[in-house]
Design a protein around this nucleic acid. Structure first.
Lengths: 109, 109
DNA sequence: TTTACACATGAAGAAGTATTCAACTAGCCG
DNA sequence: CGGCTAGTTGAATACTTCTTCATGTGTAAA
């Protein structure tokens, strides 16, 4: 095996690099969700949702269980919440920067 | 414009989803580096390195300046460090989980 | 057991990203 | 200025990842 660590990191970030997977994680960070709930919230095809859930499962980020009829997913690593938060902070700054740039251009042009 | 936020987040994570870019950010999180230093540390072609630096620049994560002859890069958003740290923590757990699984398999098989 | 529903999987074409090569630009020194 | 070195860019091909569709599996109710 022995995958270099920086490659594992890159793979990990790529796992997060999809709009549907981000939404899934954010919903699951709030509380556990059944598949049909995710389906209602996310607006993609059922089979696509399954694929994305499979990606997250393979990465070890979420877990599946069966509960009185339907399949319920939960976040396996609570730290995911911290990560999403850290990302949100940076993104906020990046977007502010962009807005600032736009302002400056408007003012000078 | 008006890109949904979860899409911006996904894009942001994809920006980090490349081994070379991770290494660049980690090196720059430590201290500023000239391009030739990155080149020595990372072992990819110069033009490839430039491409990856361009990706990070476009994302607004790093900055370029010229300093007595050579081009020096620095991290634009100090919070990147927090993010990389949060990722490291999760990754550590994920890898531990995997190891544990391997152990269990070995013990039971 | 048969039917029905909810979810998962495999495979294939479409879409996106990486790596490489060749050509270009910016700054520096003779 | 002319040529040199360091870094960047664009474009082409190779590689990954997405999305969709057809099919498979599991559970529950009839």
């Amino acid at each position: 095996m022995a995958i270099p660590l920086y490659q594992a990191k890159a793979e990990f970030f790529r796992t997060l690099g999809h709009p549907a997977r981000i939404r899934i994680l954010e919903l699951l960070a709030e509380r556990d969700h059944a598949v049909y709930e995710l389906l209602l919230a996310i607006d993609i095809e059922a089979s696509n949702l399954s694929q994305q859930l499979a990606v997250l499962r393979r990465a070890g980020l979420v877990m599946q269980r069966r509960e009185s009829g339907d399949v319920v997913y939960s976040v396996n690593r609570p730290e995911v919440r911290d990560l999403l938060l850290a990302a949100r902070v940076i993104l906020r700054h990046l977007i502010d920067d962009q807005d600032q740039l736009r302002e400056d251009l408007k003012a000078s042009g």
